[in-house]
Simulated assay, not measured.
Amino acid sequence: MTKKQKNRQMKVATLIFIILFSFTIGLFLGRNDRPVNYISEKINQFKEEWILVFQNHSTKTNNNNQSIVQNAQFHFLNVGQGSSTLLQSDDGTTILIDTGRYEDKDKKILTYLDRYIGTGGKIDLLIFTHNDSDHIGYGDLILQYYDVQEVWMNGYDSTSKIYERVLDAIGNSNTQYVEPKNGETHQVGPFYLEVLNPGTELRNNPNDDSIVTKVSFTNFSGLFSGDASSRVEKNIIKDGANLNADLLLMGHHGSETSTSKEWVEAINPEISVYSAGENKGYRHPGLETVDRLNKMNIPIYGTEKNGTITIKANKDGTFIVETEKEE
């Protein structure tokens, strides 16, 4: 639950306690000839009725929020040779997947977050797909500067100073820490998340232990796989999960070690995106990967040529693409 939901629940619980206390006093004063068991039964009955009222109110509120939300935005942030994706819905729900590269001296990710959610704004869920420096980059600053409700990590330890700073920031914050496993599902506002990797036993490979998720917003969905290799992709396919999605974030920045033919066919996306910098030494995206997607007539967008890429998804599954700069 968010802090706001917890505060609301606390207020309702306090109100119930006051009413129960008053009710009990009234019973003792007005019906002191009644046995103790009768009073206890009445209190339990009254408490159960109030719990049902509260649950029904919460369900109606959630359903109303779901029906109000019509649109969501998937921002692939231009953070250089790194990865960071911000998901937002009209009701203010925000999910941040990875936090870019620590070597970005301009700290562009903070500029983007200030623009999209406001300085010190709320992030409902922060996912670090894995602990490479180009994915956890300025995660420590984000945990310090923003109101992060929940953090996901894959449980694979690292000895890097960047990783240690992120762990310290988590420890010094009020965020909830989770290590999700494949087969789990989570609802965050109007976003529905299916965890496809890692399993209960880690592979002890920093890339292949990446948190892989399918994120759905009503009739639009996207696949996010961190730096997981084609080996992981094939294992996920064997598990039999429904991978069909409209959007594919190419694995490992479009590297030839990921985004296999079988993976793309299983997802059958309408659009693909890769996050990479202008440094050609990394050879991202891989020529074979690009050629594979071109042959399948899947449009490709990249942050190093298009800048920040925003996909605006509608409730009916239609979407439009906006780019920060032209090719």
Results as ranks from 00 to 15, higher is better:
35 P>R: 14
246 D>L: 07
203 R>F: 10
54 F>L: 11
262 E>Q: 14
278 E>F: 08
201 E>T: 15
204 N>G: 03
225 S>R: 09
215 V>T: 12
271 I>T: 11
224 F>Q: 03
305 K>N: 04
29 L>A: 06
148 V>T: 08
81 Q>F: 12
139 G>C: 12
304 E>I: 06
319 F>N: 03
223 L>D: 05
51 I>A: 09
32 N>K: 06
288 E>R: 15
269 P>L: 15
292 R>F: 01
27 L>F: 06
213 T>V: 11
90 D>R: 06
45 Q>M: 05
262 E>N: 04
252 H>G: 07
125 L>T: 02
55 Q>A: 13
80 G>S: 05
122 K>F: 02
327 E>G: 15
54 F>H: 14
218 T>H: 14
258 S>K: 08
286 G>N: 05
50 W>R: 10
211 I>W: 07
246 D>G: 05
68 I>F: 08
29 L>K: 13
186 H>D: 04
234 K>N: 15
115 R>L: 11
164 E>P: 00
230 S>C: 14
255 S>P: 04
252 H>S: 05
119 T>I: 03
33 D>Q: 13
256 E>Y: 06
30 G>Q: 15
251 G>L: 07
325 K>Y: 03
56 N>A: 03
48 E>N: 13
151 V>R: 00
200 T>Q: 03
156 Y>P: 06
99 T>V: 03
323 T>L: 07
300 I>S: 11
211 I>P: 04
327 E>F: 15
121 G>M: 09
52 L>Y: 06
191 F>E: 08
192 Y>C: 14
69 V>G: 04
321 V>A: 14
31 R>N: 15
313 A>L: 01
97 I>A: 02
273 V>L: 00
52 L>F: 11
48 E>A: 14
228 A>M: 02
181 K>V: 02
123 I>A: 08
194 E>T: 12
281 G>S: 04
320 I>P: 01
265 E>A: 10
93 T>S: 03
232 V>L: 09
101 R>L: 11
1 M>Q: 14
161 K>F: 09
320 I>G: 13
275 S>F: 00
154 N>C: 13
169 A>L: 00
169 A>G: 02
112 Y>H: 15
296 M>N: 05
227 D>E: 11
266 A>W: 10
222 G>K: 05
114 D>I: 02
177 Y>P: 07
149 Q>Y: 07
85 T>C: 01
133 S>H: 14
55 Q>P: 01
233 E>N: 12
237 I>V: 07
181 K>D: 10
130 H>Y: 11
159 T>W: 04
113 L>G: 03
198 P>L: 08
133 S>W: 13
63 N>I: 12
10 M>A: 08
109 I>M: 03
166 V>T: 10
256 E>L: 13
260 S>K: 07
77 L>H: 05
63 N>P: 04
62 N>K: 15
150 E>H: 06
285 P>Q: 10
58 S>V: 10
287 L>N: 02
57 H>G: 11
123 I>K: 00
242 N>G: 12
217 F>R: 15
24 T>N: 15
225 S>F: 13
319 F>K: 00
306 N>E: 08
241 A>R: 08
247 L>M: 00
283 R>F: 07
272 S>E: 01
